[in-house]
Amino acid sequence: MSVKIIAEAGVNHNGSLACAKELIEAAANAGADIVKFQSFRAKDLALPSAPKAKYQQKFTDKNESQMEMLKKLELDEVSHLELIEHCKKYEIEFLSSPFDIESINLLLDMGLKTIKVPSGELTNAPYLMKIGASGCKVLLSTGMSTLEEIELALGVLAFNYLKYTVPLSLEAFSSAFRDPMAANALGKYVTLLHCTSEYPASYEDLNLLAIDLMREHFELPV
């Protein structure tokens, strides 16, 4: 299996399209294969009253809310299109993590064939149902999750891949995961990503042996 390097641009553009393009150029010049951004609508992620996390307060305006900060970091449809074209110019693949259904639709409408699922959406069944029904490749982040939660997320995806028609339920998702056909279906679409949801993560918290554990447990690329 070949190795692909993903450069994490995230929201480090700080809402500046020019800066986002510079991040693409830097990633391409560094030899990365893919550059990844984030797609979201602040209104779908935070309440107006939601405070910032401590690390966010340390590096951004303490007087603004979580929603106000996120709003500044949104990329609209036109910006997405410009960044995709800029990636083509520099021969690097554009990738993004959608954080809501609307953003999934946006990326699919723009022709993306791979979706990166953020760790926080691993337990979001309606979100995973939408992605599973799309037929796109999936990079499934697993930060802060248990093996049981990962298994259930894979069950939601398998439910779609195998075209189950029974009513939605936890039992149905578990059955889909255990279906003899699930391994082939999941192997065709899904790659698991071991993630440490700590920024920056200390060496003692990386737990890289979890990569081998997940590979053996789920028999999927990790």
Rank of each mutant, 00 (worst) to 15 (best):
A201Y: 00
A18V: 13
R178E: 15
F177K: 14
L213P: 01
K71Y: 02
A133M: 12
P200V: 04
F99L: 13
G187W: 11
A26N: 05
P98A: 03
V138W: 05
G10S: 03
N63L: 10
A201Q: 00
Y199V: 03
H13D: 11
M110F: 14
K43Y: 04
E85F: 02
E102M: 10
V117A: 05
Y161P: 05
G135Y: 09
L220G: 04
A18I: 13
V156T: 08
S134I: 11
A9V: 07
I101E: 12
E77Q: 13
L106N: 13
M144R: 14
I211D: 03
I211W: 02
K62N: 12
K88D: 14
G155E: 00
L213I: 14
E93M: 09
D44N: 15
A46H: 07
A18K: 14
A46K: 06
P200T: 08
S65F: 03
A133I: 06
Y55I: 07
I115N: 01
K4D: 12
Y90K: 15
I24S: 11
P221K: 12
E93F: 01
L206H: 08
L70R: 05
F37R: 06
K71E: 15
Q38G: 04
A210M: 15
Q66C: 07
Y199L: 02
C87Q: 11
Y55W: 07
L193R: 02
L73P: 02
V3D: 00
E171I: 09
T60R: 02
S2N: 12
A183L: 12
K113T: 15
V138F: 08
N124K: 02
I101P: 00
R215W: 02
K4F: 10
F218D: 06
N63V: 00
A176R: 02
H194K: 08
I211Q: 05
D205Y: 10
L186S: 07
S65Y: 04
R41Y: 07
E93W: 00
V35Y: 00
I5K: 09
A201L: 00
C195P: 06
D76E: 06
M214I: 04
E219L: 11
G135L: 09
N29C: 11
E8P: 01
K21D: 01
S119L: 10
T196G: 05
I84W: 04
Q56M: 15
